[in-house]
Design a protein around this nucleic acid. Sequence first.
DNA 1: TTTGACCTTCCCCCGACGGGAAGGTGGATG
DNA 2: CATCCACCTTCCCGTCGGGGGAAGGTCAAA
Lengths: 132, 132
Amino acid sequence: MKISEVAALSELNSKMIRRYEEMGIIPKAGRNLSGYRLYTEKDVHILKFVKKSRELGFSMKDTKQLVSLWRNKTRSSSHVKNIALKHQKELQKKLAEIQAMLKTLDELVLNCHGDDRPDCPILHELEKCRAK
Amino acid sequence: MKISEVAALSELNSKMIRRYEEMGIIPKAGRNLSGYRLYTEKDVHILKFVKKSRELGFSMKDTKQLVSLWRNKTRSSSHVKNIALKHQKELQKKLAEIQAMLKTLDELVLNCHGDDRPDCPILHELEKCRAK
DNA sequence: TTTGACCTTCCCCCGACGGGAAGGTGGATG
DNA sequence: CATCCACCTTCCCGTCGGGGGAAGGTCAAA
């Protein structure tokens, strides 16, 4: 298979597949005589794994590790779990940050008339010095 | 005041203050004879506004608009509100994405032994083809 | 034969920073 | 007075996860 075919099958795009290869996340593809990358079913399998990892928010670095562990039958699940735990903590942190922003933002949006007058609680809030 | 002083007062760093100036978010600072940027209390006020806007997650572009509206006494609050509403929607989307990731991740972490054995539900899940 | 759809590598762009080089300035100290 | 150190300036490069598009090679159908 050529790159656009595996791209369609893995729901990635060709550009990212080349990048994953360059970053060592996936093995180097074979080439035909003209230099075109050639793929097998196995490569599609790996690419789908990468796609799922990215969909769960794992970084490129984590994904590289996860692919490597996945392919290494002598891995320890604790290694995998540590990566997941770290990512989980980061996501929880981001979640809290966004929730905090939304808490303020929801209130501001609710209180703003949104008409032609210049009075605006949003700007007023941004102007306020935090007590801190 | 020189840049590091306003940086301390606004809880930003010098680098970002220069960048905000370059991006037109804040007015161009005055200079002394040696080319050092000089600031007033008013500038600190603007910088604090910028800081709060960024803390609420507004982009640089939005922040630039908000500063401009803030300083424009003939603004309409609807203009401000539209910016806030758009940002609110984006945050809600991000929130939902992170919650979805965490929902899966929490379950995976819970089910992974995290020991020396290679069996790992996390890798197993990533390997699975989505029904889709 | 030509056309169009692929493929390749290459470099630049985004946002929101951070690091650090290279060089100028300014005030306190020896 | 010289020197030292902290600060200032501009500039370029790196990060992460991509996207856009140029320039050129390949291949199959019309």
